[in-house]
Amino acid sequence: MAENAITTKELVKKENLVYQKTKLLTDDVMHYCPGCGHGTTHRLIAEIVEEMGIQSEIIGVAPVGCSVLMYNYMNFDMQEAAHGRAPAVATGIKRLLPEKYVFTYQGDGDLAAIGTGETIHACNRGENITMIFINNGIYGMTGGQMAPTTLIGMKSSTTPYGREVSLAGNPLNMTDLIVNLPGTYFVSRQSVHTPGNVRKAKKAIKKAFEYQSLNKGTCFVEVVSNCPAGWKMTPVESNKWLAENMLPFYPLGDLKVPEE
């Protein structure tokens, strides 16, 4: 052991603490599968809410899908919306509590299939809400069916031979669509499959919350994520697959940034 190595006794001292679980996450055991991006993204949101000191000013809207139980994990007020309707629910909250921070957290089936209408119109009205869009290209909760964002050739339980355009249509790139709407103020696409990407995603999500107080329009962050269970891969394999297959079709970066 090196001369200057820290002992366990020293390590646990308060002044040596470099990281701890945010108090904005509850102690409920998360139901997410090992390696799933939801847990990481939940933690980022909770950390951001804590850092911004807005626990008493935030109301979240959970979707239907894997993250339907998000309200169990977040130590702040939340509403659970009907499938796809989170942007409408958030609109109702924000219009009546305009001084609060309101956000939706939705998967690809929720935001880009059954809730396409609500997504487009909330973004086009420029509702002053933050929308977090988890895109893992599959319906995780119901057992791995095709999502609107499932890639061409990608296998799912309802495209067992791979998604064929002639049969199942094209994958929908929702973020590319909504970036063109005048009501959106900040649009970014991130991922949480590497530590570096987690840091970048946190930065983008934090901006999407901070900008909300400007009342300039919808702030939208897509998080390209994985689904080890649905994709039938190990967590490590799924992150590799994500980088090689999802990111070429859903490239990362800021799509719309406010002019400084």
């Binding site: 509403q79 309707r85 409408a88 629910v89 109702g92």
Partner: peptide, 26 residues
């Protein structure tokens, strides 16, 4: 009083859900 023309009746009733959840008369 807030008045908003929704994009559909589906959206309208869910706006009510959000507003009612915020404790408001909708």
């Amino acid at each position: 009083m807030v008045v908003l023309q929704a994009e559909s009746e589906v959206a309208a009733i869910n706006m009510l859900y959000g507003g009612a959840g915020a404790g408001k008369k909708v």
